[in-house]
Design a protein around this nucleic acid. Structure first.
Lengths: 200, 200
DNA sequence: CGTCTATTTGAATGTACTCAAAAGCGGTGG
DNA sequence: CCACCGCTTTTGAGTACATTCAAATAGACG
């Protein structure tokens, strides 16, 4: 199955051709390693217990990445939108069954590249390594920042910060999931929102 | 200044010669890039605002890595002991001034390697890259796990988990710092400990 | 011994929680 | 188009955990 260039998010093309300087030939080769895949709302790209054997570029749609805690409650680690990559980092690199669920929240289009194909691509296009080691760095750095936020901020402050930094989330994600992401009970989030709107 | 092999933590030697298969010559070369440094209790290896231009192996002693939050309160990210590496990851890789303080808690011996020397070493000993990309992975993974803990566990549970997983910390680190690390007020930690000892 | 810091104890407060139920919203089928 | 069902969000009441402010006690160091 061929991937049609017109249907690909321009950011994808830009990332590899501009930022990482792929030649046209390299980019075309790189693309051949991907397979398009569509997943419907509420279905899963990945479940805990599975080994994550591919990276998936989220071309269109959105998803949530969560784990289950000891009591079986969902804990949302992050939401993914267009131009994000889906997967379970730890499982992908360790080759062991992972703990992450990736559930699709809107009918989505993915570009999936298997681990084998990615490794081939890496050998043929060494620039690829720069891309993912910088991605790794940013991911580690983002994790550290999120720890800080969870430790430092009150529920209300976490809500306000999210509103300020990623207001688009509120356009597409149900409040209950946002509450879970912020580690607030849905009832409490509702009260916080009530309090804030009545303040002014 | 030469580094005396006998004074180096055997784990350091083992890591590079065994785990990463450095030849004797490679290891000897690698060592020449390091400079020993001693820092006294309460002094700093690194302060916020400085650019982190080196990696430091903590050969002996211990340290705490912290940042200041918006209100100027210290937030301890982790403690470092023998066989850890000190620095500000983000600043090191970005080349920009960092946010981390690294304060020495016991008179310590470091082996310091500058960014330039490390880059030289990388070129001469390609195996080195494997080492730090796997270090990066583990660090990112550890960060994600800590997010989970902070979100999921109560103050008492966080305390008990630390007691179970890293009891040695309590031998060397003042309770106030442990409280800060666990994101608990020192008074609350004291009460938790009181409650738990009286339970039995 | 005196000073400074760390730890403990006391009392009052508040934030976010739990349990419970009502209201709102969206989709489906009659 | 309306009625019903399921799911999301809001509202209410009571509770618990950890906090703050304040002060006492204990420990470390010169």
């Amino acid at each position: 199955m061929e991937i049609e260039l017109e249907k690909i998010n321009p950011k994808f093309v830009e990332l590899f051709t501009q930022t990482y300087g792929f030649t046209e030939a390299e980019f075309a080769l790189f693309l051949t390693y991907f397979k398009p895949k569509t997943i419907s709302k509420k279905d899963y790209y990945l479940r805990a217990g599975e080994v994550c054997k591919s990276k998936a570029y989220l071309n269109k749609g959105c998803a949530r990445n969560f784990v289950l805690d000891d009591q079986g409650h969902e804990r949302i680690l992050f939401f993914a939108f267009e131009d994000w990559w889906l997967g379970d980092f730890d499982s992908y690199y360790s080759g062991k069954p992972g703990t992450n669920y990736v559930q699709i929240l809107e009918d989505s289009e993915l570009l999936v590249i298997s681990k084998e194909n990615f490794q081939k691509a890496e050998k043929e296009i060494p620039k690829l390594q720069q891309w993912y080691s910088s991605k790794m760095l940013r991911s580690a750095s983002a994790s550290r920042n999120r720890i800080e936020e969870m430790k430092t901020l009150s529920a209300e402050e976490r809500y306000l910060k999210l509103m300020e930094q990623q207001p688009h989330i509120f356009q597409r994600i149900p409040l209950q999931y946002i509450a879970c992401y912020l580690n607030i009970e849905p009832q409490s989030l509702s009260r916080i929102r009530h309090r804030l709107t009545n303040k002014h």
